[in-house]
């Protein structure tokens, strides 16, 4: 056992941090800077980050869950308003059915966002294409002989979601599907592994969000003065921030393990590790972002303060493939038969 990042992984952390910090939004106004969003999108494409789970030629992904998690975390920290989660999951699904189709794909989820959308009698119920910026179609599951095939639905236009840094597209019930003719179908284990990967990415994104929100808030607590004293000198404020820092550290530990487990453990173990990570990071991230809003005081409750942008992004990532309650129910069923 040696859970430290390799030197290549550490280098990826540095590159991803630099790039997302340079091209991510530096304030609420800059969220509407279309040129900047386009530059971040282009840089992300050039870095190859959305291709990390493409086939390496032998049926395996180009990079492990750890590398994907590093990039997800960097984007979360910088509130990077570009697509990653959707394209990476789509690539993971396509690789599993043996297709090398570099298209602009994301995934279609059920309206609660807790799982992949599944076609029923050849028709797709209402669904949501998440993380859809730049995507032209979304992948859904098509039941096929005890397993699943993949189907694509076209995306008819995207809008910014409640999370101001990511885009979605609603897919109306009954939208026509186009089956993707892969060389294999997805098994139950494939679905567990895809879910494990999705949850590990969402957890890594939440870790990044917590890092960013905490950094913003600690800086503010050092500079904002009341009673002629920086508010960060008051114990009541210090304890909120100390708890937030501690939650972040616990989250890093579960999230890194879940990212590693994606490719290193068997499907069931990886899915359990992902449930542990997501349940922990979901609760921690909401708490940390709420502390960010609170410590910023009145300003923290205005649109202008970035604290709510972190909270909004956290709320979406918490929902992706199931929040803490969904994960605890999964663990209770699996470990206790309840």
């Amino acid at each position: 056992m040696d859970t430290r990042l390799s030197s290549e992984q550490q280098a990826l952390v540095d590159v991803a941090r630099r790039l997302t910090e340079r091209l991510g939004p530096d304030g609420v106004v800059s969220l509407d800077d279309d040129d900047r969003v386009a530059r971040l999108d282009q840089a992300t494409t050039e870095a190859g980050w959305r291709r990390l789970r493409d086939d390496d030629g032998d049926g395996r992904p180009l990079a492990s869950g750890v590398e994907a998690g590093i990039v997800a975390s960097a984007l979360g920290q910088a509130l990077g308003d570009t697509a990653l989660f959707g394209p990476l999951l789509a690539a993971d699904l396509l690789r599993r059915v043996g297709i090398d189709a570099p298209g602009a794909f994301t995934v279609a989820l059920v309206p609660e966002l807790s799982s992949l959308a599944v076609a029923d009698a050849g028709r797709l119920p209402a669904a949501v294409a998440v993380d859809a910026l730049g995507a032209t179609s979304a992948l859904a599951l098509l039941p096929d002989d005890g397993g699943f095939a993949l189907a694509a639905v076209p995306i008819a236009g995207t809008e910014r979601s409640f999370d101001l840094t990511r885009w979605v597209s609603s897919i109306p019930a009954g939208t026509e599907l186009e089956e993707i003719a892969g060389s294999r179908t997805l098994t139950g284990d494939d679905i567990l592994e895809v879910e494990a990967f999705a949850l590990s990415l969402a957890s890594a994104d939440l870790v990044g969000i917590m890092r960013g929100a905490l950094e913003l808030t600690v800086d503010y607590a050092k500079s904002r003065q009341q009673f002629e004293t920086p508010i960060g000198a008051f114990q009541a404020v210090q304890h909120l921030l100390a708890e937030a820092k501690t939650l972040l550290e616990g989250s890093i530990s579960v999230s890194q393990h879940a990212s590693w487990a994606v490719d290193a453990l068997d499907a069931g173990e990886a899915r359990e590790a992902a449930a542990v990570a997501k349940a922990y990071c979901a609760r921690a991230a909401i708490e940390v972002c709420e502390v960010a809003v609170q410590v910023h005081g009145g300003y923290g409750n205005t649109w202008e303060c970035m604290a709510h942008v972190y909270l909004r992004r956290a709320l979406l990532s918490v929902s992706l493939f199931g929040d803490d309650g969904v994960q605890l129910a999964f663990l209770a069923a699996r470990r206790m038969g309840v």
Binding site: G232, Q238, L241, K245
Partner: peptide, 13 residues
């Protein structure tokens, strides 16, 4: 108290 002052670098009170 220790985390706030020594890890986060918040001012001592």
């Amino acid at each position: 108290n220790i985390i706030a002052t020594r890890v986060l670098g918040l001012p001592s009170n």
